[in-house]
Every structure is written in C-alpha cells, then in structure tokens.
Amino acid sequence: MARISKKKKSTKLIALSTTNKAYEFKKPLELKIKYQGKEVEIRLHEDPDGFSYIVWKNKKYMLDIIEKNQNRYTIMVNGVWHSFTVETPISLKRRRYLEEKGDSSSSVVIEAPMPGKIIDILVEEGSEIKEGEPIIILEAMKMQNEISSHVTGVVKSVEVKKNDSVMKDDVLIEIQKG
C-alpha cells in the first residue's frame, strides 16, 4: 500500500478482465461515465433487505462481490461473474511486459475445482499427458468427476494420494509444459 504515494497518482484506473480486455475509467471515479460516446449516470443502490444493485439506463443489475483481494476482484452482475485486476497505467504496462516474457514458462499446477475426495489418480510422476486427458477422479456432491489437464506435458509431481480429502483450489498435480 505504501507504494501508492500522492505524487505518482495517475489519471485513470483500468479494470483488466481475465480475457485481457481493458476497461478504462477516469480518476477520480465518478458515478457519471462516458460510454459509447455518451455520458451516462450509474446509480448504486442498496435495498433495505440487503441486496445491492446498479441502476443503469433504467434497468436494475444485481450486484455481488464474490472475491476481493488487493487489486483482484470477482464481481457478479445478474448471476454471471467477471474477474478483473484493477491496474494503474504503470502496473498494466509492467503486467503486460511480464506476461509476454513469462508465457513460455514451464510448469502449471492443476487445482481442485471443488472440494471433494480423491477416488483415483490416473497418472504418476513422469507420465506424459495430453491436453484434455483425465488425470484425477474427484468425488464431490455424490458425483465422480474427471479432472483433466488443460495442458500437454509431463507430470512433475503428484501432490495428493488416493482417498485424500481436498479443498477447492488445493494443488493436485504439477505439470511440466512441453
């Protein structure tokens, strides 16, 4: 937090989506924004019964913060969530630079998409796997789910054992991309 000093204050903030789309907003942030060439007012509401929503062009949009961690946000609007990192022009530049350099970086972890129990592990250290290939069977909510790899490569390490209980986002397997 200390690195945000008043001197370096920039003139805009950018919400960068996971699909790499940037939404720019002028600082200081006001509830009137320019959108498709027009100035439109955004109204924020909180119902007495606890719902929060935006009124935008006379329509209500239900709003919920799903996740908030430093500059990372997951915001749900009308039941669909969107993840962003909020960047300054400088941090965005740095981020883009690092991404370009880092893309070829080597290893990827497969995380548990949901809490559950490991029923079977279909690979071992050193196994060659292809994108889309099932690697683990995880039981959750009475269903056996196949967890598959989203990359092609070689299994670097297996972090779980059969019958382990795992939480959401626990690391299951690390894969060396290749």
Binding site: Y23, F25, Y35, Y61, I65, K68, Y73, I75, V80, V86
Partner: peptide
C-alpha cells in the same frame, strides 16, 4: 452456458474499479 449483456461486463469492471478506488 451463461448469458450476459455487454453492458453487464462493463458495469462489473466499473464497480471493481470504483470499489478499489474507494
């Protein structure tokens, strides 16, 4: 498997930025 209107993404982006700035 889900439907959203373009405005909704923008509003989510706006709200994330707004909350962050605040």
């Amino acid at each position: 498997h889900y439907h959203n209107e373009p405005d909704e993404v923008m509003l989510a982006a706006f709200f994330a930025t707004y909350d962050y700035a605040r």
